[in-house]
Amino acid sequence: MNIRTVLTLTVAAIVLAFASWWMGQQSYTWFPPQAAAEAKLFDDLFSFLVMLGTFIFLGVTGTILYSVLFFRAGRYDYSDGPPIEGNVPLEIVWTAIPLLLVFWIAGYSYQIYEQMAIRGPMELVHLHMPSMMESAYAAPADEGTEPVEEIEVHAKQWAWVFRYPEQDVTSTELHLPIDHRVRLALQSEDVIHGFFVPAFRIKQDVIPGKTIDFEFTPIRVGKYRLRDSQYSGTYFAAMQADVVVESADDYQQWLAMAASTPPQPAYNRAAAEYQASQKALVPGWKTIPPAPPPVVNYAPKHEATSPPV
């Protein structure tokens, strides 16, 4: 390699590196607000992967585009290119670099996963390696001294019901205290659903016949959207709920208010749509009827209202 090639390659690498860094910074704007401690960890990891990915993508496509522009055969040029069949050192390098990158990405992802300490399901069909599980479980993101808030989540076709066992309060809106570790007990009555709050960057399937513990820490006051993420049948897309993250005082007030309210039916979009569809001129195919609107202490009479992100 002569000095000119080395210089050109260096300049190209610097330009690529800058473009990749810029893209990595951009990636933070592609998401809903960071409403949980897990979201911050996620966004950092994603930004890192975007940066690496941009570098590789621009490197490869840049080389291809350069070839397309500058290595074209002339119209009547029927000669062949140089018969280069390989280059062992080069091939070793481009095997070793991806291998190292893979270990780097896997290592970093593992670290982030440990910090998230999302308590996964503990049994099901799988074997255990308790020694490895514990480290992931015993290191919550915020080593808070506050007690963990335990809430039951009941999913059914197609409604979410939340139950606060200590106060025996039920609701179709999930209220959470800010800066508290929250532990949800996820249960499904019928099919598999998915608990997914994009602003928290986490999700967990809800498997019928099992109770799955799921932990995270909300860190930003606001109203966010909970969606069913595992396709669950006809009204799957309508199975949404609001998640309200509020200060500890507001949270206690809300719990007290809900506890003193007698249970009544909440609005349920699936049930409402099903009612309407019975009168439709052109009906669709027959569906499993939705569960009746849940009867709960805190029963909003309207659809989920969290603002768009």
Binding site: T95, P98, L99, L101, V102, I105, A106, S109, Y110, Y113, G120, P121, M122, L124, H126, H128, M129, M132, M133, A136, Y137, I192, G194, K203, Q204, D205, I207, K210, I212, S229, Q230
Partner: peptide
């Protein structure tokens, strides 16, 4: 990953999956 798999399984299959990239 989100279907109900323990942590060690998530980590093991993460590494094997990434190895396909090589």
């Amino acid at each position: 990953y989100v279907s109900g798999t323990p942590g060690w399984m998530r980590m093991f299959f993460m590494v094997t999956t990434m190895c396909v990239a090589v």
